[in-house]
Simulated assay, not measured.
Amino acid sequence: MQTKKPATIAIYGFDHALASAITGAVDLFAQAGVTWQKIHHALPSPVFSVQLLSSTGAPVRCVNSIMLHTDGRLDARHPPDVLLIPTIGGNIEQVINQQKSLMPVLRTFHEQGVDIAANCTGVFLLAAAGILDGKSATTHWGFANEFKARFPQVNLNSDKLHTYEENVFCAGGGMAWFDLALLLIERYAGADVARQTAKAHVLDLPRINQSLYAGSRREQAHQDEIIKQAQRYMADNIKLKLSVDGLAARVNLTSRTFNRRFKAATGQTPGHYLQSLRIDHARKLLENQKWTIEQILSQVGYDDPSTFSRLFKKRTGYSPSLYRTKFTTFVQS
């Protein structure tokens, strides 16, 4: 019986990249179809043939000053099955300017149907090449506003841990490279091998989104002072029964004008924004207080436990009780 040839995956290295997003991905891809089999005394069947490449073939100095030797130069004439762009660990603007030669290679590979994946701030490089225009994408939640301002033509959903459209794959926060790697392993070898790889490396799955890692943030990266005033009032009074009509009256706007200006300033409706504030505050209370769910509900403006639980799970991927269990090490004794 003929053994299936491993797919080729090129991991692109560059100066100021996050070292762990390179070396960790190399290890995980190289061990797919190997570690689980060794544990169970079976014949290894590698899923990927992995190479670390750079623009010139020279070593790269990562953001932590570790030097990584490469296997050669990334060449548009020799497309791999998969190209992975790791996290930018240094100054994003500087790295984009230093990687001008990467842009035509990305566009060529995209046209040829190569699977192109990027992790965290590495997604900025895909967007700079134009291959994310009109597509869904995600990046690290902490850089979402910068990304939106720079690449408004990309459909960014920074709550998602990973996205994929056509042959382009994106992952969120810095260590989401292993979620991205497992997604690609499943694509090339099936769900069973992806699960085996996760189990062999003691990886916590499934992870649905990254919004639960973002923390409570008052998204006020706009210039509408009236809406900022409303946002501050909402954040300070989330336990109250707030209505759009009442909020509009507080800032001397009609409800219709308030809705329009709020959406234009924040990208969200007032109701969705308030819901996000309440869920984020509930998360903090679950992490740091031993209160009952009923006590928490009274602090975040909800009366119905079932409604709250449904909304909480929709946003975080966990029920309130499971969320508390998962983050129990953070609960004060």
Rank of each mutant, 00 (worst) to 15 (best):
L43F: 11
H222P: 11
T266K: 02
Q37M: 11
G246L: 06
I131L: 12
L182M: 08
Q220A: 05
V95D: 01
A248M: 08
V168N: 04
N155H: 11
K241N: 04
D304A: 07
L242Y: 06
R77P: 02
W291T: 09
P80R: 01
T121G: 12
L297V: 05
R324D: 04
A191E: 14
D179C: 10
T138P: 04
F124P: 06
L240I: 10
R73C: 15
V47M: 03
N252T: 12
A42E: 13
L132D: 07
F124Y: 15
S136R: 00
K228G: 02
Q98M: 07
S255W: 04
A129C: 14
K284W: 00
A129G: 15
A221Y: 12
A191M: 09
E146R: 14
A264F: 05
G113M: 08
Y323H: 10
L240A: 14
F312M: 13
E146T: 14
A221W: 08
P79Q: 06
S321A: 12
Y213G: 14
T70G: 07
P80Q: 03
Q98N: 09
A249K: 07
T266Q: 03
A249I: 06
T257I: 10
I227R: 03
E287I: 11
K135M: 07
W36V: 00
E93Y: 14
P79G: 03
S319R: 13
N252V: 12
I66S: 10
T139P: 00
V202E: 13
G33L: 05
E294H: 07
I131C: 11
A58Q: 14
I185S: 08
A21K: 05
F262M: 04
K199H: 10
Q231V: 07
L286D: 04
M103N: 04
E186R: 09
A282T: 03
G90I: 13
A189L: 05
Y273I: 05
S101A: 08
I279R: 01
N97L: 11
P206W: 09
N97I: 08
W177V: 13
T329S: 12
V331H: 14
P320D: 00
H201W: 09
Q37N: 12
R283I: 06
D204T: 05
L242W: 06
F29W: 10
V82I: 14
W177E: 07
F178E: 00
A221L: 14
L156R: 04
H272Q: 14
K100N: 12
T197S: 09
L203D: 09
K326Q: 10
A118C: 12
V26D: 07
A127D: 11
T266E: 06
S333M: 09
G172Q: 02
R107E: 00
T292N: 02
G174C: 00
K148Y: 06
I96G: 00
L242T: 04
K160T: 08
S243Y: 07
S49P: 03
E294C: 08
A265Q: 01
